[in-house]
Design a protein around this nucleic acid. Structure first.
Lengths: 192, 192
DNA sequence: CGGCTTCTTGAAAAGTATCAAATATAGTGG
DNA sequence: CCACTATATTTGATACTTTTCAAGAAGCCG
């Protein structure tokens, strides 16, 4: 059994330039950023369950990106097979290039289309059920990833709420921030 | 000496599902698309000089993307080293994940910022000179890549022309389409 | 020289960003 | 458990950018 490491939304997982192992994402959503000359963290990519993180260390390079948990998440150290490890690595990397195609599509079309695509990417996909729980990252993150403003993202999500597509989760003292249940398949069809 | 294959702007290089070798881009700009269920070619990624194309065939998979020449370009069959080929492949794939970060940045900011970033990506970079030739793809392509409309891209490019940053190349019967010289470093500074 | 495609330009409409302020949620210490 | 505070989200009004639609011009090709 591989040891799981858990992170809370917003936690730093590792920094650019450091050394460490490569990881596999078990659950949750993870953000990869690159810090530019002005010390701004530019969004570069996402990783979700099944994706490999920090593969560059296997080629004796330090980590390329800053990596943060967007939502609560679990990762495990990637145990590369002793035989043919590079082949296994290449396979993972090709998979990750497909992920990045999805990320590019998060910048296409209207605000609502982008937000819907993002929700579908973040939403736990193991269940093709008509019902499920959904934890979104802070609006600031969603806004950077979709290249929208916080206000626009907020308006989109509230519109989905008013349509009954997203239902806020109740806590002891009001709604829980960015936690929803989605009531039907409208999400999937809307984002197509 | 490796054999070069030349393609003209707009040529199909290979199609998704086919089999063939992996290639290395020698010059020019190449577009990778994915055809969706509605038979639309969705822009997925770019490849420029130094990038690997179709690496998935080395893992005995058919080509994943449709690949077109955006500008005239040259590619050569990638001769993977017999020893440690998978390691070399992994190295190339990591490089390509950095390219995709640039592609994401082509969807950020104002129309003019996006077009400038695209021009800088397409512009032959081997020369850090203050002067050079530039072949842009048809507006339709530039528009899809930057997620703008053809009209908006046209307005940006013409604005750069009026500012004297891009200068059309003269042919026998008027200007050549999408061919320019750029007169100074303004491009680089503007896109930063 | 046509005929066709691509590019250009203008005016109006739509969509988002911006700015400012109010409200909601989460965290902390009594 | 409650009050208090800091942070995040929501909402409205306005300004700005980009899209849309419709011609017209320019470049390309046989």
């Amino acid at each position: 059994m591989k040891k799981l490491m858990s992170f809370k939304a917003g936690d730093l997982i590792y920094m650019s330039g450091q050394n460490g192992p490569a990881y596999k994402v078990v659950s949750g959503t993870i953000r990869l950023s690159q810090t530019n000359r002005n010390h701004q963290a530019l969004f570069a990519n996402l990783a979700i369950a099944g994706d490999l993180l920090g593969a560059e260390v296997l080629l004796r390079k330090p980590y390329t990106f800053e990596v943060y948990a967007l939502t609560d998440c679990e990762i495990s150290v990637w145990q590369e097979p002793t035989m043919l490890w590079a082949e296994a690595l290449a396979e993972e990397l090709i998979k990750s290039s497909l992920r990045q195609t999805e990320v590019v599509s998060l910048r296409c079309g209207t605000a609502m289309e982008r937000v819907l695509r993002f929700i579908n990417l973040v939403k736990p996909s193991n269940q093709n059920l008509a019902h499920g729980n959904l934890t979104l990252p802070p609006l600031k993150e969603t806004a950077e990833i979709t290249d929208l403003t916080i206000e626009t993202v907020s308006r989109c999500i509230n519109s989905l709420r008013k349509q009954g597509i997203l239902i806020p989760v109740q806590g002891a003292r009001g709604n829980l921030r960015n936690q929803f249940t989605f009531s039907d398949q409208s999400l999937i069809s809307l984002a197509a």
